Measured scan of single mutants.
Amino acid sequence: MEVRTIKVFTTVDNINLHTQVVDMSMTYGQQFGPTYLDGADVTKIKPHNSHEGKTFYVLPNDDTLRVEAFEYYHTTDPSFLGRYMSALNHTKKWKYPQVNGLTSIKWADNNCYLATALLTLQQIELKFNPPALQDAYYRARAGEAANFCALILAYCNKTVGELGDVRETMSYLFQHANLDSCKRVLNVVCKTCGQQQTTLKGVEAVMYMGTLSYEQFKKGVQIPCTCGKQATKYLVQQESPFVMMSAPPAQYELKHGTFTCASEYTGNYQCGHYKHITSKETLYCIDGALLTKSSEYKGPITDVFYKENSYTTTIK
C-alpha cells in the first residue's frame, strides 16, 4: 500500500517557510505537534488534498525554529505562539472599519479597549522592536488589523473576551517599542525636605499616572512627601515624541487643539466601556464603527496623549 502524501510549508514567522512532505494517514499533531492554519487549530486533523502548498504555523520545537521565533517575536515564552494563534482565530472574524481616516474595530468580545489602543497607536510616533509587531502594525494602518490585535493580546497575556485596560495595554506595548531616546527629568520640591531631581528613561519617561493635564504637570502637581507634608512635583525636561497622561476616570474637559487623542471610560472596574476622542479640525468621538463630532467635550476621561518633541522648564 502506497503512502499518500502532500507537500506543505511549516513556519513560526510566515517569513521562513520549511518544506514538509506530510503523510495523509496521520494527523498534523502526530507529525508536527500543535499546528495552526489561519489561526485555526488543526492539530487533530489529517492532511487533505486542499492543504497542498498551504502554510501551517507550528510551535518552535527545534533550534532553527526557536531562533526564527525569537528573532521575529522577541520572546522565548513557549506558550506565546499558541496564544497568538488562538487569538487570531477570533480577531480574523472582527470587522476593521476605516473611521475618520483611522483603522478602528467594530465592537465584539469586549474589544473596546483594543480599538482605543489601536486608534491611539496610529496617532503617536512609535516604532516597535519585534519585527512581528512592526509588520502587523503597518498592515493594521492599511486596514488589516487582525494579526496586530492578536499579537497585542498575546504580548499582554490576554484572551479574547476578557476586559482590558488601555493604560495597561499601552504599557505592555511600550515595553516592546523603541523608547531608548526618551528621557524625563522631574523635580520634587518640599518646604521641609528641599528639592530632589529624578531622571527617568524609556517607558517611565512617557507615562504618568495622577493627572490628565500635561500643562498642569509642567506647572506642578501636589504629591505627598515622605515627611508627610505636601510637596510639588513638576516637569523639568521632556525628550520624547509623545507623552501619555493618565488618571482614574473623572469628568474632564478636553479643549480642541490642546491634545492629540484621549480615552474615555464609562462604567466601573468590573464592567465598563471605552471610547476614543481625537482632536482634528474639530473633536471626534470614535466608538467602534461609530463616529460623532463636537466642538467641545466633557466626560469621564482616563488617558490623554500629547505630541511632544523637546521641553525644558522655565521655572527657576
Rank of each mutant, 00 (worst) to 15 (best):
E253Q: 08
N61E: 05
F305T: 04
T266Y: 05
E308T: 11
P241S: 08
L283K: 00
A115R: 04
Q31C: 13
N100H: 10
L200F: 10
S104G: 14
A177F: 00
K293E: 14
F174L: 12
K293P: 11
H90T: 12
Q134L: 06
T313V: 12
N100I: 02
E296G: 12
L119C: 05
S279D: 14
E204Q: 15
R141A: 09
T35R: 07
K7T: 12
R66M: 13
L151P: 03
M209Q: 15
I152R: 04
V185N: 04
T19C: 10
Y234R: 10
T35K: 07
K219C: 07
G164F: 02
P224I: 10
T64L: 10
Q175Y: 02
N147W: 07
T159M: 11
V12G: 06
M209S: 15
H18A: 07
F70M: 14
K92G: 07
Y284C: 15
E264H: 05
E71N: 12
T43D: 09
E2A: 12
K298H: 13
E296T: 13
L200R: 07
K219V: 10
V185H: 00
Q175R: 12
I15F: 15
Y252M: 13
T27A: 14
M244D: 00
C182G: 03
E144L: 07
M26C: 14
L179Y: 00
T312C: 07
G161T: 05
E71D: 09
I6E: 05
E144D: 12
R167I: 01
S279Y: 00
V189D: 13
P131C: 00
E215F: 08
Q98A: 10
A247P: 06
V221C: 09
T258D: 14
S79C: 12
K158D: 03
M26L: 14
P97W: 13
L235D: 01
G220C: 03
S246W: 06
L114C: 08
A250W: 00
T76I: 14
T292C: 08
E264M: 05
V8A: 13
T266P: 04
R167C: 05
T103G: 01
I152C: 09
M26V: 11
K280G: 13
A177E: 06
H48F: 11
R66V: 13
G101N: 11
T103Q: 00
R66E: 10
V42K: 07
H176W: 15
S295R: 10
N89W: 12
F242Y: 00
A289V: 11
F148T: 05
D165N: 15
N100P: 06
G53S: 11
V185S: 02
F242R: 03
A150L: 03
F9S: 11
Q98I: 14
V22L: 11
L118S: 03
T292N: 07
Y138P: 11
C112N: 02
Q230G: 06
V166P: 01
P78G: 11
A289T: 11
L65E: 07
T278C: 11
M24D: 07
Q175P: 14
H90D: 07
L151C: 00
Y214H: 01
P130W: 05
A145V: 04
L163K: 15
E308I: 08
P248F: 11
G39D: 09
T232H: 02
A145K: 04
S171R: 15
T199Y: 07
E253S: 11
G272V: 00
P130K: 01
Q122M: 04
Q122S: 03
A250G: 11
L254Q: 00
N157V: 04
Y72R: 09
S295C: 05
F305D: 02
T19Q: 05
T76P: 12
A108V: 09
R167W: 03
Q230H: 06
V12T: 06
Y57L: 08
Q216N: 07
E71W: 03
T76D: 13
T169E: 00
E308R: 07
N187R: 11
F128P: 08
Y252I: 11
G267I: 12
F217H: 01
T159F: 08
F128M: 02
H276V: 04
P34W: 13
V22E: 04
N157A: 04
